[in-house]
Design a protein around this nucleic acid. Structure first.
Length: 567
RNA sequence: GCGCUCGUAGCUCAGUUGGAUAGAGCAUCAGCUUGCGGAGCUGAGGGUCGUAGGUUCAAGUCCUACCGAGCGCACCA
């Protein structure tokens, strides 16, 4: 239990004692007052007022008079209908001590120690380009995995590669039709496939003959027999190799890879079984599971030409995962547009007797100002373009500040800054809100951005270096200034933020917290001198700064953002 | 038509699960460096929280209806 939680428990005990036996307050009954000068923890007396038929103001006065303060609690005060508690320097000291002892472990807990969770994310389609929409999925998935691991959940992150959809058949057809003899250089392979995909999508709009040819290729690919298979294998490998390199570049944790093309046999067996059991029914030549009684429409599994649909293969995937890892819970980090398909999947699995806990971690997609991105039309902002523009800009800015730095250091720093900007902009938004991508915003390094957080961290490192002492203060008696108080209160709350993020699958909580913490540190740093402060104060402020640096690093690491000592 | 999501300052977003006077960033304007890193800090202006009802001691938050935007709803993934 963190110091902050312990303190809250203590306060709950005080309240319980003062109120009497008929009442046991819970963690939810106490809150943060809206302003710092109102205290650190507040207890509203409205519920008691109703039970006792007494005014909440009177109760607040009565309760606060009946409480013994001491230790971490400096003062208890009735303010209107609230009882407000003020923490003492001993509490601040305990927080700083906890951080300096636990270091990179500060904020973690072991609530997940007995639970295994599989997290499926990073599900790109081969033969298509990776755009900033995919990037949101990758980075959210990565951060979620790391946040869950910080609560000691046993997490199995997996990637599912869609290498067999009708989009693949389109590309294979397009190459055979128009690009059979072209030599594609290695660097251009992935872009070439994306170009062909857009080209085919546009040209065959009303071409029934072409659609039939593509359907035939699809059948060949699914059965792995026929003249198109070799070309599919070759181009598929181009994409998969590219994904592996890209995931490595982003440092995505992935313990298992699944491929759609690898699930065909399993899927056919499952569908057969569903038909036998009467769960799947025949309709207009296709096979489907009727979920209308659950208001989920129909789950279409097999086309009238006998080929399999994505939803069917997802069933096989679920069983494959279960066989190989038997996780207690499975999370699917997938675009909100697939909410219905997800519900259909879960419902169908349930009818098949699949009993594990399943949940869709839904996030809204990324659009441009012109509207949704679609590989079909080529209206996309590619990952590489974003990365390269950010990197160039970060390098220019860094060079301006450090003309003496050598190329290697410059590059490493610029990369960290660029990636921090990209990651933070993708992670700071609530998952249920779409991101309207705008290059001007994405390239901003000021305000609520990744580079601002790195900058705060770098300043703290510089401070530590200049202090020329590794001695850490064990007291906090002088940290009474409102700016210092706000800072250590914020440090104390980090474990709770982390916990909430892990339970609600909202990594944005951490992003907002870190920004707020940075602002509080900057305000403190700007107003109060650390190195020039008198003896005891100097040591304590250094400890406060060091603790801030530690928490910043912990949080940034969970978000996948690498800190740098200077920038 | 049915379903899901969203609507908070000019723009982009928070708002700790119903609590005290609704907060940040960007943009605009005015300041701060012979003091630890100005990618920073301080201040100002800017709000009928989409609209109308309801629930209650208390509503940006919950309920209902409506308005607006986005997405989904049988052979795409």
């Amino acid at each position: 239990m963190s110091v902050a939680q312990e303190a809250k428990q203590h306060i709950l005990q005080l309240i319980k004692t003062a109120v009497g036996k008929e009442y046991t307050p819970s963690m939810d009954d106490v809150m943060r007052p809206p302003k710092d000068d109102m205290g650190d923890i507040a207890f509203p007396c409205f519920d008691l007022a109703r039970a006792r038929k007494q005014s909440p103001q009177e109760i607040a006065i009565e309760l606060s008079a009946n409480m013994e303060v001491g230790g971490w609690i400096k003062q208890v005060k009735a303010q209107g209908p609230y009882v407000n508690f003020y923490y003492s320097p001993l509490f601040a000291q305990a927080v700083l001590q906890e951080i300096s002892e636990k270091r990179e472990k500060y904020g973690t807990s072991n609530v997940g120690a007995q639970k295994s969770i599989m997290v499926e994310y990073a599900q790109p389609n081969t033969h298509k380009a990776i755009h900033v929409g995919h990037v949101r999925n990758f980075l959210v998935g990565q951060a979620l995995v790391q946040v869950l691991r910080a609560q000691r959940y046993h997490v199995i992150p997996v990637s599912y590669i869609n290498d067999l959809g009708s989009h693949v058949a389109k590309v294979v057809w397009g190459i055979k039709k128009w690009h059979q003899k072209e030599e594609i250089i290695k660097e251009d392979r992935v872009a070439f496939l994306a170009r062909v995909y857009a080209e085919v999508s546009q040209k065959i709009e009303a071409d029934e003959g072409a659609k039939q040819e593509i359907a035939k290729i699809f059948q060949e690919l699914e059965s792995l027999k026929g003249p198109s298979v070799a070309l599919w294998k070759k181009t598929r490998k181009w994409s998969v190799d590219y994904f592996k390199a890209l995931f490595k570049e982003l440092g995505l944790p992935i313990d298992a890879w699944y491929f759609e093309s690898d699930l065909v046999v399993d899927t056919k067996n499952i569908v057969e079984d569903l038909i036998k059991k009467g769960i799947a029914i025949h309709s207009d030549g296709a096979w489907l599971v009727d979920l209308q009684s659950e208001k989920l429409g129909v789950n279409l599994l097999v086309r009238s030409d006998g080929t399999l649909l994505y939803n069917a293969k997802d069933l096989a995937l679920a069983f494959r995962k279960e066989e190989e890892y038997h996780p207690m819970q499975s999370l699917y980090v997938i675009d909100a547009r697939q909410s219905l398909a997800m519900q259909q999947l879960f419902s169908t699995l349930k009818r098949m007797g699949f009993e594990k806990e399943l949940a869709h971690v839904s996030y809204e997609f990324v659009t441009t100002k012109e509207g949704a991105m679609a590989s079909r039309t080529g209206n996309v902002i590619l990952y590489e373009e974003l990365r390269d523009r950010l990197t160039v800009m970060a390098k220019e800015e860094t060079k301006k500040r450090h003309p003496d730095w050598e190329e290697k250091k410059l590059k490493k720093t610029a990369r960290a800054i660029a990636f921090s900007a990209m990651r933070f902009s993708m992670l700071r938004q609530d998952l249920e809100k779409k991101i309207v991508f705008d290059f001007d915003e994405a390239l901003a390094f000021e305000g609520c951005t990744g580079p601002y957080l790195l900058y705060t961290y770098a300043r703290i490192q510089s401070l530590k270096k200049k202090a020329k002492t590794s001695k850490v203060s064990l007291s906090a008696d002088h940290l009474n200034h409102p700016l210092e108080h706000a800072l250590w209160m914020s440090l104390a709350s980090y474990p709770e933020v982390l916990f909430a993020a892990s339970q609600e699958h909202q990594v944005s909580f951490i992003a907002h917290y870190l920004f707020d913490l940075s602002q509080k540190f900057s305000a403190f740093y700007n107003e109060l001198s650390v190195l020039q402060a008198p003896g005891g104060t100097r040591e304590e402020r250094l400890a406060l700064a060091q603790a801030t640096g530690q928490v910043l690093q912990n949080g940034l690491t969970l978000l996948g953002i690498e800190t740098i000592p200077s920038m």
